[in-house]
Design a protein around this nucleic acid. Structure first.
Length: 729
DNA sequence: TTAGCATGTCATCTC
DNA sequence: CTGAGATGACATGCT
């Protein structure tokens, strides 16, 4: 845990210092006004559990701007032991407040959470400039380390300390001495629980009965108005007066696991957390990789050279998610900080409420639940860990299913050169087993037909295609001219047909592999030469492979026997059987013309049978070629579809990451508003409400209540009128 | 010599 | 029923 904390601490410090240096100011009003419509539902969404929330004290930023002081988010608790004393599960209790409108409770949005350094991640995620580069980080780190070297411990950055100073400068007029003391102690991370009555049976502190009357400070109204303006709780314009029901308060004493406030063991054993730490370290390592390779240098060039790029893109945001859950226990539990600072304050109240209960608190009526992730009530015990970890890990695993091509596609979109992409793709391997972009072995120079076929089916280079095609064609012509006697026999000339009929209009289409997008889906490449060729016009153009071979032989040994030797079997048979017309005619003539042709000649049965076999085989041959071509086209189309889908997947993933980032920012802002409002609340005596005992809730009707923690929703439903207090929205 | 590939052929099925 | 096409399986030849 210490390691993790250090991680977060340093990260937060670096970031916050940077923010201070650059004077980042976040315009909450503008942002929220624009983002609010979906905000509520987003916040209420299931992913809320992942969202890091953070209570930032915005006392001094009521002007609608959130100035994030770098030091305000630094917490001494970061160095402390993980939170243990979880609040009574404010969220859990919230669930039990069906009628809860904005309820005031203690502890929920504990400002202490603001102190937690673990918010660094969320801060980074929320406000970190995307262009934050490593030198900046290094500079910040150096500055921070200098502070440390100068003797400024991390406590120097403790928000509470600074808050003290801030309060000294701006004392609240409504605060009386008691209130100041309480608030100070609260802000200093002192466990208020220790100073409050604790139920001896349950270990839960008994919330102080507070009657929020008309003396609610004006700042409360202002804050609520601000909150209302930025958060549409409902149509109700007035908040019910928050009234504390003594019964409810008393009921808090009831040990209720149902409230998610089971008595938890105190500090969990140190050892069981070691594994957790290790796991977190692993996650952090992944996050670092992602941050470095994806966000800061999103272009792929690092991915291609770095570790497996696959999951970096995928799990970046996912990996960051655990951090929020990790943060919450400390962020939102006042006791956590107190424990860290004053371990003696650890009480049996430590809550180890499990996530299931916590999740159940994520009701729509639970304002705290909105702002505070479920884990707010979780301690850093193993229970919590086990409940938290599966999610990020599961997500990682799930996202790991994203194939490498997603990143590859992203790279392509990002301008990744095709060569690099191809290289990367090769490295990433292909599950198709098909290498469409494979460098096709050049067709045999001695086979024009082969070259054509190869070019068609195997996507040979255009150079090979055009060159050999031309060669093949001229060769055939030469042969045809040189050896007209072949025509007498009439032969099947698939090669000639291909050369003449195949319409690979643009051999260059076969460039741009591996997609083979330009593959021309022409299934007519095997159509024989026009049947207009008469028998006497039939040229002795044999099949391509034979033609080329004939070419070489024709110049050296133009003997017909040798030519016949290389003719197709059917051609030879046809010659042997003295078939009076060409195989091309036999094969390609329409049935009627074919029958007429047969009728014109007196042929023996053997000749007729041979002719029919030749026709059958010839047609089947073309059919087979077409079939193969179709297969290839299908594969190519499928691959293209896969690529498109991968591109879409990568794009959607990118959008998802952006959404998550945006959501995180919005949640942080809402959390800040929550805290701001809460910290402005004063009871009738002018004292602030301890966040450990009260929390804000809003109801479906839009009313906002401040409710004491530990009050079940059932109790609320029974006596809501006693607890609710309409507040100006 | 062998593997891989392109092509041809056959059998079978469908229309 | 026949012819044509489609397709799986196998054979053949080439690199």
């Amino acid at each position: 845990m210490l390691y993790l904390k250090k991680y977060f601490t340093e990260g937060l410090i670096q970031f916050t210092i940077l923010l201070s240096l650059i004077g980042v100011r976040v315009d909450v009003d503008t942002y929220l006004s624009n983002q609010l419509p979906p905000l509520r539902e987003i916040i209420l969404g299931p992913s809320s559990a992942y969202t890091q929330t953070q209570f930032h004290n915005l006392r001094n930023t009521l002007d609608g701007y959130v100035h994030r002081d770098s030091e305000t988010v630094v917490s001494t608790s970061s160095q402390s032991t993980p939170s243990i004393t979880l609040d009574n599960g404010a969220g859990l209790e919230d669930v039990n407040h069906p009628n809860a409108t904005l309820a005031m409770r203690g502890g929920g949005g504990a400002p202490e959470s603001t102190y937690n350094l673990n918010t660094a991640d969320s801060s980074l995620g929320a406000v970190a400039p995307e262009d934050l580069n490593k030198p900046d980080i290094d500079l910040i780190d150096i500055l921070w380390r200098q502070d440390i070297d100068l003797g400024a411990g991390r406590e120097v950055f403790n928000y509470s300390n600074r808050q003290k100073e801030s309060e000294e400068e701006k004392p609240s007029p409504c605060e009386n001495k008691e209130g100041n003391e309480e608030q100070e102690s609260w802000r200093n991370g002192v466990n208020l629980q220790a100073a409050q009555p604790v139920d001896g049976e349950t270990g839960e502190s008994i919330p102080e009965q507070v009657s929020i009357g008309s003396q609610t400070s004006l700042s409360l109204q202002e804050c609520l108005r601000l909150l209302e303006a930025t958060f549409p709780f409902g149509e109700e314009s007035e908040f019910p007066a928050p009234v504390v029901n003594p019964e409810i308060v008393s009921n808090e004493e009831v040990p209720s696991t149902s409230q998610g406030l089971p008595l938890a063991p105190q500090l969990p054993p140190e050892e069981p957390q070691l594994d957790l730490e290790q796991q977190w370290q692993d996650i952090m390592a992944i996050m670092e990789l992602q941050v470095c390779s994806l966000f800061e240098t999103y272009p792929f060039f690092e991915l291609s050279t770095g570790s497996t790029p696959v999951n970096q893109d995928v799990s970046l945001h996912q990996a960051s998610l655990p951090s929020c859950s990790q943060d919450f226990p400390q962020m939102f539990s006042p006791q956590l900080g107190s424990i860290t600072i004053t371990p003696r304050t650890v009480t049996p109240r430590v809550s180890s409420s499990n996530s299931s209960n916590i999740n159940s608190t994520f009701g729509a009526t639970n304002l705290t639940g909105i702002f505070l992730p479920p884990l707010i009530n979780s301690s850093s015990t193993n229970i919590t860990s086990t409940t938290i970890l599966p999610d990020p890990f599961g997500t990682l695993l799930e996202e790991s299913m994203l194939d490498e091509i997603s990143l590859l596609d992203l790279a392509m979109e990002e301008g990744f050169s095709q060569a690099q992409a191809s290289q990367l793709e090769d490295e990433l391997d292909s599950d198709s087993g098909l290498s469409l972009d494979s460098s096709h072995s050049p067709a045999s120079p001695s086979s024009s037909e082969t070259s054509c076929s190869s070019a068609a089916s195997s996507s040979s280079t255009s150079a090979t295609f055009s060159e050999e095609g031309a060669v093949g064609y001229s060769t055939d012509s030469e042969v045809a001219t040189a050896e007209p006697e072949e025509g007498a026999v009439g032969g099947y000339q698939p090669g000639f047909s291909k050369l003449c009929r195949m319409s690979y209009q643009d051999p260059s289409q076969f460039h741009g592999l591996p997609q083979l997008d330009g593959v021309n889906h022409n299934h007519t490449y095997n159509l024989p030469l026009s049947s207009a060729f008469s028998e006497h016009q039939d040229l002795p153009i044999s099949t391509g492979k034979k033609t080329v071979r004939d070419k070489s032989h024709s110049k050296l040994q133009p003997h017909p026997d040798l030519l016949d030797k290389h003719a197709s079997r059917d051609e030879r048979r046809a010659r042997a059987m003295k078939i009076p017309f060409s195989n091309e005619k036999i094969i390609n003539l329409p049935v009627e013309e074919f029958n007429e042709l047969l009728a014109k000649h007196h042929l023996s049965e053997a000749q007729l049978a041979l002719i029919r076999d030749i026709r059958r085989r010839g047609k089947n041959k073309m059919a087979a070629q077409n079939c193969r071509k179709r297969k290839l086209d299908t594969i190519i189309n499928l691959e293209q579809g896969v690529q498109d889908l991968r591109r879409d997947k990568a794009r959607l993933l990118k959008e998802k990451m952006e959404f998550i980032r945006s959501l995180r920012q919005m949640k942080q802002k809402m959390q800040s508003l929550y805290q701001e409002v809460f910290t402005q609340l004063r009871d009738e005596e002018g004292r602030p409400y301890p966040p450990s005992e009260y929390s804000l809730q809003y109801g479906a009707d839009g009313s906002v209540l401040i409710m004491p923690r530990g009050v079940t929703t059932a109790e609320q439903s029974r006596k809501p009128e006693k607890k609710q207090k309409d507040k100006k929205k």
